[in-house]
């Protein structure tokens, strides 16, 4: 199948993109570590890191897309998202991962691991949310 255009993915996932952490430090997207997100959430004061565990990964009717079911946060809310197979998620302790790492690397030059059921991804929530 023809590759979806990179424009379908946010520009900040492109290797070499400059990311500003909450303390002002600048890092390249490919150099980010789990600690960078944890510390930035601490500094931000408004945001909290949630652990979102991949429960299921199903094919979608949308071409080149999958439906990922997550168990989110301490309440284990069940959330489903439909994303392109190359969309990268940040897995705790592992780094960028997607359902189709080769495609992610081909489109974004971002090295990627394979996202699998059981992986725990970083997601955000507002501290003000109950």
């Amino acid at each position: 199948a023809p590759l979806s255009p990179t424009s379908a993915l946010p520009p900040y996932f492109m290797k070499g993109s400059i990311i500003q952490l909450a303390d002002g430090e600048l890092k390249r997207v490919e150099d980010l570590r789990t600690e960078d997100f944890l510390q930035s959430a601490e500094v931000s004061g408004e945001l909290k890191i949630d652990s979102s565990t991949v429960e299921r990964i199903d094919t979608s009717r949308t071409p080149d897309a999958v439906i990922i079911q997550f168990s989110v946060g301490e309440h284990k809310a069940q959330v489903c998202v439909e994303v392109l197979v190359e969309y990268p998620f940040f897995v705790f302790g592992q780094g960028w991962s997607s359902c189709c790492p080769d495609r992610t690397t081909q489109l974004l030059a971002l090295s990627c691991a394979k996202l699998s059921v059981g992986d725990v991804c970083i997601s955000l929530t507002l501290k003000s949310l109950r």
């Binding site: 946010p10 520009p11 900040y12 996932f13 993109s17 400059i18 990311i19 500003q20 952490l21 909450a22 600048l26 997207v29 980010l32 960078d36 997100f37 930035s40 931000s44 945001l47 949630d50 979102s52 997550f70 989110v72 946060g73 309440h75 809310a77 959330v79 998202v81 998620f89 940040f90 991804c121 970083i122 997601s123 955000l124 929530t125 507002l126 003000s128 949310l129 109950r130």
Partner: peptide, 25 residues
Amino acid sequence: NVEPRSVPVFPWHSLVPFLETSQSN
């Protein structure tokens, strides 16, 4: 002569999703 060019800088929180479904206070 290298023309200076602006490099976009993205905030860290744009990289990870908001997945929580709870209602706000």
